[in-house]
Computed example of a mutant assay.
Amino acid sequence: MAKHLFSQFPEDEQRAVVAVCSRLGFVPDDFEITDEGFQPDNGDPAPRQVSVRRPATDAQSAYDASEGQGPGWIEEFESDLECGLFGQPSGHAPA
């Protein structure tokens, strides 16, 4: 089992998360994003789970990012941001 910090994620995933956060008024640094991958012995695609936690609200969620799922976890994360799972955006509202 290998665990990676967000800074070790593929660059396209990092860019997509930053874009989603920025568009919705969040700061990516407000989140602890890690993943864990498991190497199956039978040659099947490696399962991968991404965990996202926002320490300020203690909200967290896990997403399936296994091979074949593509960046679908980012869409799920975006949906959770939009519905308020992780709390209010950290950006300042216009006056």
Rank of each mutant, 00 (worst) to 15 (best):
M1A: 15
A2K: 14
H4P: 04
H4I: 07
H4S: 12
L5H: 14
L5Y: 13
L5Q: 12
Q8N: 11
F9P: 01
P10F: 10
E11W: 08
E11S: 14
E11D: 12
E11I: 15
E11C: 11
D12P: 08
E13H: 09
E13K: 06
Q14L: 07
Q14F: 07
Q14W: 09
R15M: 10
R15W: 09
A16I: 06
V17E: 00
V18Y: 05
V18P: 00
C21L: 04
C21Y: 00
C21M: 06
C21P: 03
R23P: 05
R23Y: 05
R23F: 08
L24H: 07
L24I: 04
L24N: 10
G25M: 09
G25Y: 08
F26P: 00
F26S: 02
V27S: 13
V27M: 12
P28L: 13
D29I: 14
D29N: 10
D30L: 05
E32N: 05
I33T: 02
I33D: 00
E36M: 09
E36D: 09
E36K: 06
G37S: 12
G37V: 12
F38E: 14
F38T: 15
P40I: 08
D41C: 14
D41H: 12
N42D: 15
D44W: 10
D44A: 15
D44H: 15
D44P: 08
D44Q: 15
P45E: 07
P45F: 08
P45Q: 06
A46F: 11
P47S: 04
P47A: 03
R48W: 01
Q49P: 03
V50L: 00
V52H: 01
R53P: 02
T57N: 06
D58Y: 10
D58M: 14
D58Q: 15
A59W: 00
A59M: 07
A59V: 02
S61F: 03
S61E: 04
Y63K: 01
Y63L: 03
D64M: 06
A65T: 04
E67D: 13
G68S: 05
Q69V: 09
Q69K: 09
P71M: 14
G72N: 03
G72M: 02
G72A: 05
I74M: 05
E75Y: 09
F77S: 00
F77L: 04
F77C: 02
E78C: 08
E78Q: 11
E78L: 04
S79R: 11
D80G: 01
D80P: 01
L81S: 03
E82M: 15
E82R: 15
C83V: 13
C83K: 15
L85K: 06
L85D: 01
L85E: 04
L85G: 02
L85H: 06
F86I: 04
F86L: 04
F86E: 00
G87N: 02
G87D: 02
Q88R: 08
Q88G: 06
P89T: 05
S90R: 02
G91R: 08
A93Y: 08
A93E: 07
A93M: 04
P94R: 09
P94Q: 13
